[in-house]
Write a protein that binds this DNA or RNA. Structure first.
Ligand SMILES: [Zn+2]
Ligand SMILES: [Zn+2]
Ligand SMILES: [Zn+2]
Ligand SMILES: [Zn+2]
Lengths: 140, 140
DNA sequence: TTTGTAAATGATAATCATTATCAATAAGTA
DNA sequence: TACTTATTGATAATGATTATCATTTACAAA
């Protein structure tokens, strides 16, 4: 998905396409690292100087609402966002450089059933996330 | 583990045992729900009126450092803490009432190996968490 | 028990992140 | 082109967490 596709999504949902949103979308869409609002602000302002931090917050809010981005939870904090994967995917994060990779194909059904029986819970969702070192950081 | 055992842990690690810590420990240790600092403050102040919110923050910090409690990540926020499980355990959260259950016995090794090969990452940790409805909420 | 010392406390202020307000601007349709 | 209304950025307000500091208190040693 390109930045333009994201803007089209916004437009289709009744939101207007503006320079501010263009800068934010361009910044977030292409990043392979999870970015905090302030980080987005710093990068996007190089594309559109007049951008305000508040607009970054508002735009991220809308992108999350449209499932174009997702919040990334980490031990050091949970304020960062990254372009959302397609379908059912999970994250793999490099603890050294912050690089984010997606993966799919987890099969947690068997475990889920066992836990459901043991606890009496009805299980509806799961969060699964891996941490480690990316190939580049590993080589160092 | 009892509240006294937690206080003993604190003492063994060179921290003093005080009324403020006693109230916080008692509150957090027995809770089956993840509690935010302010929630701990409100409950613990019934046991020790003079308690300050700042001391709650400081005590939670130490309990986390000693791995007696852990931070709970949820879609609605990540400020809450709960008594930590023993060994390698994961959380199961009721989306309705917030009840927390622990489970173990997840085996993610197979998946981890596949993902490692595909991505080139060295995987060192994983986060796994289930959401659903507890037996009580399910019955309603 | 008494005493001395350093850790711990609570009140307050300071900082940082996020959200609300509002007048001015600009997107997009007619 | 003109009009309507969403959007914007600046500012203020709120909320959460952390820093400061004088006072209190745990607890080990005498
Ligand atoms: Zn989180
Ligand atoms: Zn890396
Ligand atoms: Zn999954
Ligand atoms: Zn429940």
């Amino acid at each position: 998905m390109s930045a333009n596709a994201w803007l089209a999504q916004l437009h289709e949902n009744g939101y207007r396409i503006t320079k501010a949103r263009g800068a934010v979308v361009e910044t977030v869409e292409k990043s392979t690292h999870a970015l905090t609002p302030v980080e987005v602000y710093d990068i996007a302002r190089k594309k559109y100087r007049a951008l305000g931090l508040v607009t970054v917050y508002r735009t991220l809010e809308k992108l999350e609402e449209l499932h174009l981005i997702q919040r990334v939870h980490q031990p050091m904090g949970c304020q960062a966002f990254i372009s959302a994967g397609h379908g059912h995917q999970h994250l793999l994060l490099c603890k050294n450089c912050g690089q984010v990779a997606f993966f799919e194909g987890d099969d947690v059904d068997a475990l889920t059933k066992v836990v459901a029986k043991k606890t009496g819970y009805l299980i509806t969702e799961h969060w699964f996330q891996l941490f480690g070192l990316c190939a580049k950081c590993r080589a160092k």
